[in-house]
Design a protein around this nucleic acid. Structure first.
Length: 837
DNA sequence: GCAAGGTC
């Protein structure tokens, strides 16, 4: 019997720290073993893993994609190897003389598997210590204490279910990914991937695009008129009963719309024949799980990735609970009153939190999803002070706080008023208006993220006559279905049962990284269509949600002990073998198809100088340009703007047959249009001379001029270019003109930019040199804060340390820089640098 | 260098 300490193993460091704190009553000390935190007290040690610390893979002899037929991966053995060496080593060291082991990983299937992985690592070095498993769904005093007082055993069947998933995913994903990549000869960074989750997600996007392509718009008309009671006017819309006796507003026949319009235009009054008042209760929202949090964050302008990244930071700092959860029901031991009390001292939302304390009875809402993984996302009773968070972090934190406030607030009440008035005519056209008024704001008072816009319709009574005026007929067209936005995509994935709370947003990012989708909302590339088409023909399972549904069933059977891991994986192997029978026969055709799709994504249109196509290429310095596919026989090129990543639009230029180019650059995204038109326009636009060049004006007589570049950009540069390379940036858009205000310092006139859009104010740019100086100063001030995790205060500290822009941040040596800044470690610096890339 | 799932 070993006599060493008892070892508690959790899924992550954060959980280890909090559990140690609870079990030790705050007396635990933190120590580091092999660079990993270990919490010690009495005869106990507690260590946090980092999720899976071992991973499945094929043996090394399968590593070379060219040497191995992808089909061989199906029967290859699957090994488990440590992926987090330092944690595995620390775990082994602590386990060696432990007298007892307690597995305290997350209470879900993956947590059971992570627990079993830890168990196996422990058993490698210690085969006698008893191993217990504790389960709790939130790290609170009561739950943790109870779980440790009544430990259970590891559920090896549940863990085996997770292992079956790992093996099936690896074998299908790796073999098919290699097959597609090899057949299209895409081996480097541009390999072509498929998988059980990314496949159906991509198909979802491609299918929607197919619907959009196939969409045939239909014309219809809608009619409106203003109704007036006394001096109160409101808009009403024409409607009729269709053949199913349901109310319809769209008129599909123009003649009929005209006829109705004629009647409405001629009428001067309508008689009210229906007034219906209704009170509607608008219930407060359910607590946040990951998907609903992402959806709400997207409503205030955050991408799924960004929202999760901020939430993770807020969690690590202790301000919110764990952000990866499926649960929408608060645990019993959440005391809303205590939390409101704590939040009531916070900035921005303190008064709102306090106002909710007045209620006699506080009963939080609950959603449909109740799981054991973690509690719904809510704020903790630890409040950040204003300088602790960046502006974005505050915004997201406030969203989480206000969502919690909303879940304990009252329902809102709306009053709806529906009025129908009919014109006295043979056609009897009816008009309706729907008014709504927020009578009791309820939760809206603390949760301003949902619309509370009202529509005023005056109090009218049946039989009353209203004045009718201003009849309008609007010609419209049915619209194609909309593309999925990121948050809608995540919601749909959740509904389909693919991916998990912690991975769905990453899957979308992966589709971007693989060149399958572009822009926001994401739009599929030709390559994506090619991959989905190829998969549909030969490996339909990999793009179908059925694969996950079947796997879930199989996993449940394994967990119940009704099936074994081997049975499930062997059956999957056979299925995959059959898929490969079809694939091998069509290898050539499939490769051709994928290569054509890849080329289509880059093809701009016919080369004006030869029979080949113009394609988008990347020069050695990383910039994009348009070049002829016939190179080196044909050296024709066109430049592209220097900012952003080019994508091709469906529209083509009528003069040159070239696709319009759009430059994706986040908020600075813009349409460049036909690159040949842009180049020609630049050749035609005369330079506008501004004044003497500050570099060579005195000696050589060089002058500064506003020049349009063939890449579509514009700059102020010396007329002696390339002998003099002096230049200043200029905005791409708008008409530039000179003003008569002269800059004394630089002897240059001011520049004004005017816009075609008459509503847009001209931009008084002033002296171009002064303007650029101010711009640079602003950049130096703000630029660092564009990096995730760097706020105003940190930017100050970085500048004190001599790092004043992103370029120098990227060049900095992490250890050296970390030493110069209080509270910042080299890993943080490395994170910044990664984000800056 | 492949997947998907944890986590940072």
């Amino acid at each position: 019997m070993k006599r060493g300490p008892e070892l508690i193993i959790t899924e992550k460091d954060n959980a280890a720290r909090r559990i140690a704190d609870i079990l030790s009553d705050g007396s635990a000390d933190a120590d580091r073993v092999n660079g990993v935190n270990v919490y010690k007290w009495g005869g106990k040690r507690c260590i946090g893993l980092s999720g899976h610390v071992v991973g499945v893979d094929f043996p090394p002899e399968y590593d070379d994609w060219r040497d191995v037929e992808p089909v061989e991966l199906i029967s290859a053995e699957v090994e488990k190897r440590p992926t987090q060496e330092n944690i595995v080593a620390a775990l082994r060291r602590l386990a060696r003389n432990a007298s007892r082991i307690v597995i305290a990983t997350d209470y879900d299937r993956e947590g059971e598997l992570i627990g079993k992985e830890a168990y196996e690592l422990v058993r490698d070095v210690n085969d006698e210590a008893p191993v217990d498993r504790v389960r709790f769904s939130s790290i609170t005093d009561r739950e943790v204490t109870e779980a440790f007082a009544d430990p259970d055993d590891l559920d090896f069947d549940l863990a085996a279910a997770g292992e079956a998933r790992q093996i099936v995913d690896l074998m299908w994903g790796a073999s098919l990914t290699r097959f597609l990549s090899l057949s299209a000869r895409q081996l480097g960074d541009d390999f072509i991937s498929v998988g059980r989750v990314q496949g159906p997600t991509l198909k979802l996007i491609v299918d929607r695009e197919r619907e959009i392509d196939a969409f045939d718009p239909e014309d219809y008309w809608e009619l409106f008129a203003d109704l007036t009671k006394a001096d109160e006017t409101f808009e009403a819309q024409y409607f009729y009963l269709d053949e199913d006796d349901t109310e319809a507003e769209r008129v599909w026949d123009e003649d009929r719309a005209d006829a109705v319009h004629d009647v409405l235009a001629a009428a001067e009054a309508a008689t009210v024949d229906e007034v219906r008042r209704r009170t509607r209760t608008d219930d407060p929202p359910a607590p946040f799980n990951t998907t609903q949090f992402i959806r709400a964050a997207s409503g205030i302008g955050y991408s799924a990735q960004r929202a999760m990244s901020i939430a993770e930071d807020l969690y690590t700092a202790g301000y919110i609970t764990y952000p990866r959860t499926d649960n929408t029901v608060y645990p019993d031991d959440l005391e809303p009153r205590d939390l409101l009390d704590a939040l009531s001292s916070g900035p921005r939302f303190g008064d709102d939190a306090a106002s909710l304390l007045d209620a006699d009875d506080i009963e939080p809402t609950a959603g449909d999803e109740e799981t054991t993984d973690h509690p719904p996302i809510h704020p903790t009773d630890e409040l950040p002070s204003p300088s602790d968070l960046s502006e974005d972090e505050w915004e997201v934190y406030e969203l989480v706080v206000r969502r919690f406030l909303a879940t304990v607030a009252d329902a809102a009440t709306w009053e709806h008023l529906r009025v129908v008035a009919t014109v006295d005519d043979a056609m009897d056209p009816s008009l309706k208006a729907n008014g709504k008024r927020l009578v009791n704001p309820g939760y809206h008072a603390v949760y301003p993220y949902r619309s509370t816009s009202e529509n005023y319709v005056p109090d009218v009574t049946e039989g009353e006559t209203l004045a009718l005026a201003d009849a309008q007929m609007a010609a419209k067209q049915t619209q194609p279905p909309r593309r999925y936005g990121q948050s809608r995509l995540i919601e749909t994935m959740e509904k389909m049962g693919i991916g998990t709370k912690a991975t769905r947003h990453d899957v979308i990012q992966k589709l971007y990284d693989r060149g399958y989708i572009e822009g926001d909302p994401p739009r599929p590339t030709r390559l994506a269509r090619g991959v989905v088409e190829a998969s549909e023909e030969f490996a339909d399972r990999i793009v179908s949600e059925e694969m996950t549904a079947q796997l879930e069933e199989d996993m449940e059977a394994i967990a119940r002990g009704e099936a074994t891991l081997d049975e499930v994986t062997d059956e999957s192997r056979e299925m995959l073998e059959r898929v490969f029978d079809g694939l091998m026969e069509s290898r050539e055709a499939l490769g051709d198809h994928l290569r054509k799709s890849l080329k289509a994504d880059k093809t701009v249109g016919p080369c004006p100088e030869c029979d080949e196509d113009l394609v988008i290429r990347r020069s050695r310095n990383g910039s994009y340009f348009v070049g002829c596919d016939g190179y080196p026989d044909c050296e024709y090129t066109l430049p592209l703007p220097s900012t952003g990543k080019p994508i091709l639009l469906d529209e083509t230029c009528p003069d040159h047959g070239l696709s319009d180019v759009k430059m994706l650059a986040g908020r600075k995204t813009f349409v460049h249009g036909c690159p040949l038109c842009a180049a020609e326009a630049a050749d035609e636009e005369p330079d506008l001379v501004v004044g003497p060049c500050p570099e060579c004006g005195d000696e050589e007589g060089g002058e500064l001029a506003i020049k349009r570049l063939r890449s579509g950009g514009r700059l102020v540069g010396c007329t002696r270019y390339p002998d003099c390379e002096y230049s200043l940036p200029m905005p791409r858009r708008g008409e530039a003109e000179l003003t008569d205000e002269t800059c004394e310092e630089h002897d240059l006139p001011g520049i004004r930019i005017t816009y075609e859009d008459a509503d847009r104010e001209p931009w008084e740019l002033g002296c171009p040199i002064c303007n650029y100086r101010e711009y640079q100063a602003r950049q130096a001030g703000d630029e660092l804060e564009t990096v995730d995790g760097i706020g105003e205060k940190t930017a100050e500290k970085l500048k004190d340390a001599g790092v004043d822009d992103v370029a120098s941040l990227k060049d900095a040596e992490p250890d050296t820089l970390a030493d110069q800044i209080d509270g910042v470690g080299p890993d943080t610096v490395r994170n910044w640098q990664a984000d800056a890339d």
